[in-house]
Design a protein around this nucleic acid. Sequence first.
DNA 1: TGATGAATATACCGAACAGTAGCTTCTGTC
DNA 2: GACAGAAGCTACTGTTCGGTATATTCATCA
Lengths: 238, 238
Amino acid sequence: MPIDRGSKKAMPTEQETGGAPAPKEAWRLADEREELHARKRRLILEAAARAFAEGGYHQTSIDRIAKKLQVTKPTIYYYVKNKDELLFQIAQTVLNDLDEELAAIEIGNFPALDQLKIFFRVYAKLINSDFGYCMAFVSDSVLQPVSRAKLRRYKKEFELRVRKIIEEGRQDGTLQVADPRMFTFAIFGAFNWMPQWYARPGAQTVDEIVESFLDIFCGNLMPSGRGAAVRSESGQPG
Amino acid sequence: MPIDRGSKKAMPTEQETGGAPAPKEAWRLADEREELHARKRRLILEAAARAFAEGGYHQTSIDRIAKKLQVTKPTIYYYVKNKDELLFQIAQTVLNDLDEELAAIEIGNFPALDQLKIFFRVYAKLINSDFGYCMAFVSDSVLQPVSRAKLRRYKKEFELRVRKIIEEGRQDGTLQVADPRMFTFAIFGAFNWMPQWYARPGAQTVDEIVESFLDIFCGNLMPSGRGAAVRSESGQPG
DNA sequence: TGATGAATATACCGAACAGTAGCTTCTGTC
DNA sequence: GACAGAAGCTACTGTTCGGTATATTCATCA
């Protein structure tokens, strides 16, 4: 019976078993094992995400994912409870990443407009990855109601945080926005749709596209001709 | 053996069979039958579109669609060749509708900006219907390569026609657009994403949302008070 | 060296479902 | 009223696939 995989790291805070302390060596090995486990789990998620993004959730069998990793189906099930779970974990991973990024942005005390731009540069990268694609396109309607509701709540929370930035931008006058709610939907829609038309090693890089989009939405019109989309603000916080 | 359902109406131009002409009555009845057939076929497509939109393509069995229509599965297959075909027909119907609308718009000699607005008012309605949703979200990756390629070509053609309108708008100065291609992607993305967040009988009507979006993209400042989204190029701070 | 348990494999089950064969029924025609 | 063909049904097939029971391998440890 496999142990509970839910707990993140289970860092053993000294010997819980009051008796003789297990040798350090044992703990180290246990940790390594756990890390290896986490790493393999991650590999599975990655293979799944790629497969889902390429062929769709239902057209992708667990067997196929297993074959890609050169293992067998039960091995997958050793690391993941369900096919659903697979998808759910993928989406959650993305949302966690996004959460961290957004938190960092919120802390750094930039002007709202800059916050928005920084956020969508990150967001565009993510949404064009296999993970991001799964989160945006695959996740809904496939999951169990509970997981679905959870993800929706999470997504909604995001949208609100971004909307808040937009509202700030409107108040300090750096963003000309009539209806922040609609604006949020529009800009998310535009970015979310990217993977539908953007071919990976296309003529344009993701970054170039992002700048174009930010131009469109944030009204940064270039005074002179082409490509004056100067990234005025400094780089990422960090 | 059922007759070929591909031909649209098969209007019998007088008696093809050189012999005795069939009585008019017979033709009339045949036409009625054919019309009834087409109508039923349409009902099937509608039921399918609704089911696909609600539950996803793969989660929807033909049996389920049949049950909704209070018939049995083989009946569906009497009208449609494949499950694929079902989806393909749905998408094609939408694209045909869109084609007609766009053609009408192109003919009427409006200014580009107006053309764009008229188009997206129609488009938003469509994309929020079951048919439109299926076209935008379900169709890809599910279909056979041939059908898929066909739809893609069709969609691409559209995008180009709309882009052309946008380019005209740029040239006559009614649209401030730096990169028409990117602008096209952005605006389509925003609209395509609508059904992901818009709840049918929501606080806002589709029309209201469309106007908000057109505001955002086409800089249509509303005369009354708030948020005069004057999109004349306000440079970026810094 | 034998015990333990993690990690992977083999082999299978049962359900769901697309699609079909072939029978029946109903309607208009001759 | 016999025929033809459209329209629909019951009952079945074949396959795919998620998921599992169970065996096997292998490293760690006592």
